[in-house]
Design a protein around this nucleic acid. Structure first.
Lengths: 72, 72
DNA sequence: ACTTAAAGTGCATCATAATACACTTTTATT
DNA sequence: AATAAAAGTGTATTATGATGCACTTTAAGT
Protein backbone atom coordinates (compact mmCIF):
# COMPACT_ATOMS: atom_id res chain seq x y z
CA UNK A 1 0.00 0.00 0.00
CA UNK A 2 1.23 3.38 -0.94
CA UNK A 3 0.83 6.28 1.35
CA UNK A 4 -2.28 7.60 -0.35
CA UNK A 5 -3.94 4.24 -0.11
CA UNK A 6 -3.35 4.09 3.60
CA UNK A 7 -4.93 7.50 3.94
CA UNK A 8 -7.83 6.51 1.77
CA UNK A 9 -8.52 3.32 3.65
CA UNK A 10 -8.51 5.05 6.99
CA UNK A 11 -10.80 7.76 5.75
CA UNK A 12 -13.20 5.33 4.16
CA UNK A 13 -13.29 3.20 7.25
CA UNK A 14 -14.05 6.20 9.40
CA UNK A 15 -16.85 7.22 7.08
CA UNK A 16 -18.25 3.71 7.03
CA UNK A 17 -18.42 3.82 10.78
CA UNK A 18 -19.95 7.29 10.56
CA UNK A 19 -17.49 8.75 12.97
CA UNK A 20 -16.41 12.36 12.70
CA UNK A 21 -12.77 13.40 12.72
CA UNK A 22 -13.43 15.05 16.03
CA UNK A 23 -14.78 11.90 17.62
CA UNK A 24 -12.02 9.79 16.18
CA UNK A 25 -9.48 12.25 17.51
CA UNK A 26 -10.94 11.99 20.98
CA UNK A 27 -11.28 8.23 20.95
CA UNK A 28 -7.79 7.64 19.61
CA UNK A 29 -6.04 10.25 21.64
CA UNK A 30 -4.57 11.78 18.51
CA UNK A 31 -4.85 15.53 18.10
CA UNK A 32 -7.60 16.74 15.81
CA UNK A 33 -5.16 18.78 13.79
CA UNK A 34 -2.95 15.77 13.32
CA UNK A 35 -5.85 13.69 12.12
CA UNK A 36 -7.07 16.37 9.76
CA UNK A 37 -3.63 16.78 8.30
CA UNK A 38 -3.27 13.07 7.81
CA UNK A 39 -6.64 12.56 6.18
CA UNK A 40 -6.20 15.49 3.88
CA UNK A 41 -3.05 13.88 2.53
CA UNK A 42 -0.59 16.18 4.19
CA UNK A 43 1.62 15.00 6.96
CA UNK A 44 3.52 11.84 7.50
CA UNK A 45 2.29 10.19 10.66
CA UNK A 46 4.49 8.21 12.97
CA UNK A 47 3.78 4.53 13.29
CA UNK A 48 2.35 5.09 16.75
CA UNK A 49 -0.05 7.73 15.53
CA UNK A 50 -1.19 5.54 12.68
CA UNK A 51 -1.70 2.64 15.04
CA UNK A 52 -3.74 4.70 17.46
CA UNK A 53 -6.06 5.79 14.69
CA UNK A 54 -6.30 2.38 13.09
CA UNK A 55 -7.01 0.67 16.38
CA UNK A 56 -10.08 2.71 17.11
CA UNK A 57 -11.38 1.96 13.64
CA UNK A 58 -10.95 -1.75 14.14
CA UNK A 59 -7.99 -1.89 11.80
CA UNK A 60 -4.43 -2.88 12.41
CA UNK A 61 -1.18 -2.08 10.72
CA UNK A 62 0.53 -5.09 9.24
CA UNK A 63 3.36 -5.99 6.94
CA UNK A 64 2.67 -8.33 4.09
CA UNK A 65 4.83 -9.87 1.44
CA UNK A 66 4.73 -8.08 -1.87
CA UNK A 67 4.18 -10.17 -4.98
CA UNK A 68 3.39 -13.35 -3.15
CA UNK A 69 4.25 -16.30 -5.36
CA UNK A 70 1.32 -17.45 -7.48
CA UNK A 71 -0.25 -20.70 -6.36
CA UNK A 72 0.05 -23.57 -8.83
CA UNK B 1 0.35 -5.92 14.87
CA UNK B 2 1.79 -4.13 17.80
CA UNK B 3 4.80 -1.96 17.46
CA UNK B 4 7.24 -4.62 18.64
CA UNK B 5 5.87 -7.09 16.16
CA UNK B 6 6.45 -4.70 13.32
CA UNK B 7 10.01 -4.26 14.44
CA UNK B 8 10.48 -7.98 14.80
CA UNK B 9 9.08 -8.78 11.40
CA UNK B 10 11.29 -6.25 9.69
CA UNK B 11 14.35 -7.49 11.49
CA UNK B 12 13.61 -11.11 10.76
CA UNK B 13 12.96 -10.38 7.14
CA UNK B 14 16.25 -8.55 6.84
CA UNK B 15 18.07 -11.45 8.43
CA UNK B 16 16.33 -13.94 6.19
CA UNK B 17 17.58 -11.99 3.22
CA UNK B 18 21.00 -11.80 4.85
CA UNK B 19 21.25 -8.09 4.43
CA UNK B 20 23.15 -5.97 6.92
CA UNK B 21 21.67 -2.86 8.47
CA UNK B 22 24.23 -0.88 6.56
CA UNK B 23 23.20 -2.32 3.23
CA UNK B 24 19.53 -1.92 3.99
CA UNK B 25 20.14 1.66 4.98
CA UNK B 26 21.84 2.35 1.68
CA UNK B 27 19.27 0.54 -0.42
CA UNK B 28 16.30 2.14 1.29
CA UNK B 29 17.71 5.60 1.58
CA UNK B 30 17.04 5.61 5.30
CA UNK B 31 19.85 6.73 7.57
CA UNK B 32 21.79 3.98 9.27
CA UNK B 33 21.22 5.56 12.65
CA UNK B 34 17.49 5.64 12.04
CA UNK B 35 17.43 2.01 11.05
CA UNK B 36 19.49 0.96 14.04
CA UNK B 37 17.24 2.86 16.36
CA UNK B 38 14.16 1.32 14.86
CA UNK B 39 15.41 -2.24 14.93
CA UNK B 40 16.65 -1.95 18.47
CA UNK B 41 13.14 -1.03 19.54
CA UNK B 42 13.75 2.62 20.16
CA UNK B 43 12.30 5.22 17.92
CA UNK B 44 8.95 5.60 16.32
CA UNK B 45 9.41 5.76 12.58
CA UNK B 46 7.23 7.82 10.31
CA UNK B 47 5.08 5.96 7.85
CA UNK B 48 7.37 7.03 5.03
CA UNK B 49 10.44 5.69 6.76
CA UNK B 50 8.74 2.40 7.50
CA UNK B 51 7.60 2.11 3.92
CA UNK B 52 11.05 2.77 2.55
CA UNK B 53 12.49 0.01 4.69
CA UNK B 54 9.68 -2.44 4.02
CA UNK B 55 9.81 -1.87 0.28
CA UNK B 56 13.41 -2.89 -0.05
CA UNK B 57 12.68 -6.03 1.95
CA UNK B 58 9.83 -6.98 -0.33
CA UNK B 59 7.24 -6.12 2.27
CA UNK B 60 4.47 -3.58 2.25
CA UNK B 61 2.56 -1.79 4.93
CA UNK B 62 -1.12 -2.61 4.95
CA UNK B 63 -4.19 -2.15 7.08
CA UNK B 64 -6.28 -5.16 7.87
CA UNK B 65 -9.48 -5.65 9.76
CA UNK B 66 -9.03 -6.78 13.32
CA UNK B 67 -11.08 -9.73 14.52
CA UNK B 68 -12.38 -10.67 11.13
CA UNK B 69 -15.69 -12.46 11.53
CA UNK B 70 -15.32 -16.20 11.75
CA UNK B 71 -16.42 -18.08 8.66
CA UNK B 72 -19.43 -20.36 9.15
C1' DA C 1 41.68 -16.14 22.50
C1' DC C 2 42.00 -12.99 18.47
C1' DT C 3 40.03 -10.64 14.82
C1' DT C 4 36.60 -8.54 12.45
C1' DA C 5 32.16 -7.46 10.96
C1' DA C 6 27.78 -6.25 12.46
C1' DA C 7 24.88 -4.21 15.79
C1' DG C 8 23.99 -0.89 19.40
C1' DT C 9 24.69 3.79 21.99
C1' DG C 10 25.80 8.91 23.37
C1' DC C 11 25.62 13.27 21.74
C1' DA C 12 24.50 17.09 18.79
C1' DT C 13 21.91 19.25 14.92
C1' DC C 14 18.24 19.97 11.70
C1' DA C 15 13.81 18.94 9.99
C1' DT C 16 9.39 18.06 10.82
C1' DA C 17 5.48 15.54 13.33
C1' DA C 18 2.09 16.63 16.94
C1' DT C 19 -0.57 19.93 18.80
C1' DA C 20 -3.76 24.04 19.90
C1' DC C 21 -6.36 28.01 18.42
C1' DA C 22 -8.72 30.69 15.30
C1' DC C 23 -10.60 31.07 10.92
C1' DT C 24 -12.35 29.52 6.08
C1' DT C 25 -14.41 26.32 3.05
C1' DT C 26 -17.26 22.54 1.95
C1' DT C 27 -21.16 19.66 2.44
C1' DA C 28 -25.54 18.39 3.93
C1' DT C 29 -30.16 19.41 5.45
C1' DT C 30 -34.16 22.02 5.83
C1' DA D 1 -30.76 30.27 -0.03
C1' DA D 2 -29.92 29.99 4.98
C1' DT D 3 -28.03 27.15 8.55
C1' DA D 4 -25.23 24.04 10.81
C1' DA D 5 -21.97 20.54 11.11
C1' DA D 6 -17.96 18.63 9.42
C1' DA D 7 -13.74 19.14 7.09
C1' DG D 8 -9.76 21.81 5.79
C1' DT D 9 -6.05 25.66 6.42
C1' DG D 10 -2.55 29.39 8.45
C1' DT D 11 0.42 30.23 12.00
C1' DA D 12 3.11 29.29 16.03
C1' DT D 13 5.09 26.23 19.63
C1' DT D 14 6.88 22.01 21.50
C1' DA D 15 8.38 17.42 21.07
C1' DT D 16 10.72 14.27 18.73
C1' DG D 17 12.08 11.80 14.31
C1' DA D 18 16.05 11.60 11.01
C1' DT D 19 20.68 11.96 10.61
C1' DG D 20 25.99 11.85 11.06
C1' DC D 21 30.07 10.96 13.74
C1' DA D 22 32.58 8.62 16.98
C1' DC D 23 32.75 5.01 20.16
C1' DT D 24 31.30 0.48 22.63
C1' DT D 25 29.41 -3.97 22.66
C1' DT D 26 28.18 -8.26 20.67
C1' DA D 27 28.44 -12.07 17.63
C1' DA D 28 30.85 -14.98 14.24
C1' DG D 29 34.61 -17.09 12.27
C1' DT D 30 39.33 -18.87 12.34
Amino acid sequence: MHFEEVVKQIKERRETLQVTQETLAQLSGVGLRTLKQFESGKGNPTLQTLQKIADVLGLEVSLKLKNPPVKR
